[in-house]
């Protein structure tokens, strides 16, 4: 019996070795291991073997089967691998051919900048609010400490609809709406479109965007204003940005300041961008004028606050190095695609 099994094994292995196609190997499996195969036939003949010999012979048969199976399987794997490799060789592509791009649209640079600004201030606990673009004189001027006949009204070149209704010249008008609600504390950011009678050129547009920040609470200080805007500037222009606050005048803040940031192009050494000064003027700000608080029935002895107003285009033109404001309203696809 042992010899017989040895013979089957040797024969089978010989056949496997001779095979170079999967079909041949299948044939081997059927002929030796299949239901009608030679090893199965030996197992079937076990009934003729003496009962005490049976386990031993059975074990020998199984060992033979396992040995054949092992060689057979590895031969199959080898052939399959070779076949796959052959197939992939034929499937080589030119990876440098152009891609099938998904043609996404592009966001306007002004709004990319605005979203970044909003993200920064929302993170600092500010609620974004809006106000009307066509506004009453009271909200745009009077309640901001700019009474009738104030020269600031001339300076701002306001577009009027009639004596009382105008196109807002500043998002500061939204401050007043928020103060009037009387819900304290206030931390708001008011972005939006504003209008001034400037002829269209590379640096002017009769319509542009601002965002106004307003914080009113107990114990708000000028140093808080500095800290907040310092953080804003670092986030939007880079960690190394330095801020310089200069005294200025706005009717609705006192003390007032303008903020310059160190030129992010040259780092403050002076270049074409900052006209050699190393600084770029970015925004106006200040402590909310006590009159402005009083006009909305907020006691300036209990509450203080700060406000700042920033030209959005000032940020987006600088940040993306756009040298002509007219590009923002042309909507040329070749311009928009760059953002």
């Amino acid at each position: 019996m042992k010899e017989k099994l040895e013979k089957i094994k040797t024969e089978a292995l010989q056949k496997i070795q001779e095979c170079n196609a999967l079909e041949g190997l299948n044939e081997v499996r059927v002929n030796y291991l299949g239901k009608k195969g030679e090893l199965t036939a030996v197992l079937k003949g076990l009934k003729d073997v003496a009962a005490e010999e049976r386990p031993k012979v059975g074990q020998m048969v199984n060992e033979t089967r396992e040995a054949i199976e092992e060689v057979l399987n590895s031969a199959i794997q080898k052939l399959e691998k070779a076949a796959l490799e052959e197939k992939m060789k034929a499937e080589v592509i030119d990876v440098t051919l152009p891609s099938n791009k998904i043609r996404m649209g592009h966001r306007h640079p002004n709004f990319i900048a605005l979203e970044e600004v909003e993200r920064i201030f929302v993170g600092l606990g500010y609620e974004v609010v809006e106000g009307p673009e066509i506004e009453r004189d009271y909200y745009n001027f009077e309640a901001l400490n700019i009474p009738a006949d104030h020269p600031a009204k001339d300076e701002q070149d306001t577009f009027y609809i009639n004596g009382d209704i105008l196109l807002r010249t500043q998002t500061s008008s939204v401050q007043v709406h928020e103060l009037e609600k009387g819900k304290l504390p206030i931390r708001i950011l008011a972005p939006g479109r504003v209008f001034r009678a400037d002829e269209v050129d590379a640096t002017h547009s009769p319509s542009f965007h601002q965002f106004e920040g307003l914080v009113v609470d107990k114990n708000i200080t000028f140093s808080d204003l500095k800290g907040t805007l310092d953080q804003f500037a670092k986030e939007i222009f880079g960690e190394d940005t330095k801020c310089k606050f200069r005294p200025h005048h706005f009717p609705f803040t006192e003390p007032s300041a303008e903020m310059d940031v160190s030129c992010f192009k040259c780092g403050g050494k002076g270049c074409r961008f900052c006209k050699g000064s190393g600084w770029i003027e970015i925004l106006g700000c200040g402590m909310v004028h006590p009159h402005v608080l009083e006009m909305s029935d907020i006691d300036p002895k209990v509450y203080t606050g700060f406000a700042f107003g920033v030209g959005l285009e000032r940020i987006s033109l600088l940040k993306y190095e756009i040298d002509d404001m007219r590009l923002l309203y042309e909507n040329d696809d070749r311009f928009l695609k760059q953002f």
């Binding site: 609620e127 140093s223 606050f245």
Partner: peptide
């Protein structure tokens, strides 16, 4: 009057802090 003090004390010497006080939830409408 406070602005006069700030101007000649020096805007640059005023410290840099962040507002304290009640927390507010930042959000978009």
């Amino acid at each position: 009057i406070a602005e006069e003090v700030a101007r000649f004390y020096g805007y640059d010497k005023i410290p840099v802090t962040l507002p304290q006080g009640s927390a507010t939830a930042g959000k978009l409408p």
